[in-house]
Nucleic acid binder design. Structure first.
Lengths: 193, 193
DNA sequence: GGGCGACATGAATCGTGGTTCATGACCGGA
DNA sequence: TCCGGTCATGAACCACGATTCATGTCGCCC
């Protein structure tokens, strides 16, 4: 896939940004971890910020791929699809500890890209919600975009609390169960209004 | 209240951190905006990081005060209390644009304090949820801490999307309505399981 | 074999900005 | 009025790290 050195740099950068933070990681350090000299970094990226943007796009692709795969592999009700998607998301987070910190920090380094990240993700959710609304599994009166941002906010905070703060890595089953229950009940079409 | 110069510095710092970001704001700049010379800054705070911590604690106090006031002023069901609390929160956010960015960025400058911030906030929510559970207004099987983090995640993301990304400042009424509906239905005690 | 171009290298450069400190202004008391 | 001490000032200091570049190395073609 493309340039192996570029790949190495991306991997090294993601790891360092996740372990420490963007501001605490140096270009020389990234290059060294990728097995390159400091100056060689600039043969692949224009600046330190530039590689952050590339890392961010890569993470976005991975998250979307993983979730899409899990979702398409799950034929079933909206509730089941939701669960499959979240499970895939939490699983990815646990395998690459700290990646999510990288995304968050990007807000203060490359706000435009950060926003693009979440808007892209939201678009995917919105499509899913709309389909479920057509099938009558989610209340038609709810704004799909609001639902999308509630999804993302919940995933974000539960991941932070139970995957990062607690050493574990994976959000515990019972926490996820509570989330799914809360969402299912919250979204389903209801009697009155 | 205490030292007026210290207050001025806190106000200046919060404003600058909110407008730009922690890393893009200089100590000299903060001091200047507070009407002080660069060196005088260190008569009040030990370091730049130190003032961020102080700003964070002040914001935390404000958020909790505002929400507590709104909640105690609202006698009623959990749904009404919830709404009052969130409304107060969104209102505060709209009056001090960008404060929430300051909180978020703190994660990468003073992680311990950032965590303390959310854990303190969560404790407050947990107490509220437990009371509502006793009164039978929230499903007794839900872990109050999970609910607390879903609350915070939703508030965070909706605030970011509709108060910051959209120029407005205040999260629109219909977005809030969707959130309240989703939470009320999601939390209420249910038939089966 | 020699010359050339492309790439790798890492030490030196350069800007930035947090922190320090020598200096001066001010004020209360003797 | 003079003295000592406290505080304000902002220029200088200093460390740090992103970026550059002069030099060396390698592989290819004539």
């Amino acid at each position: 896939m493309g340039d192996p050195q570029r790949q190495d740099l991306l991997i090294a950068a993601e790891a360092l940004f996740a372990e420490k933070s963007y501001h605490e990681s140096g270009v020389a350090e990234i290059a060294a971890r990728a097995g390159l000299a400091t100056g060689s970094f600039y043969r692949h990226f224009d600046s330190k910020k530039d590689i952050l943007v590339a890392v961010l796009r890569a993470i976005n692709d991975d998250v979307r791929t993983v979730m899409r795969d899990a979702i398409t592999a799950t034929a079933g009700s909206q509730a089941e699809v939701e669960r499959a998607g979240f499970d895939a998301f939490f699983d990815l987070m646990s395998k690459r500890p700290g990646v999510y910190r990288v995304v968050r920090e990007a807000e203060f380094v490359a706000p435009e890209v950060f926003r693009e990240y979440y808007e892209t993700l939201a678009r995917g959710y919105v499509r899913g919600v709309q389909k479920a609304q057509v099938r009558g599994e989610i209340d038609i009166d709810l704004d799909p975009e609001v639902v999308a941002f509630v999804y993302m906010g919940a995933g974000y905070f539960l991941g932070m609390r139970w995957a990062e703060w607690t050493g574990g890595g994976l959000v515990p089953e019972d926490v996820r169960a509570d989330l799914y229950r809360l969402l299912r009940r919250g979204l389903e079409p209801g009697e009155s209004r």
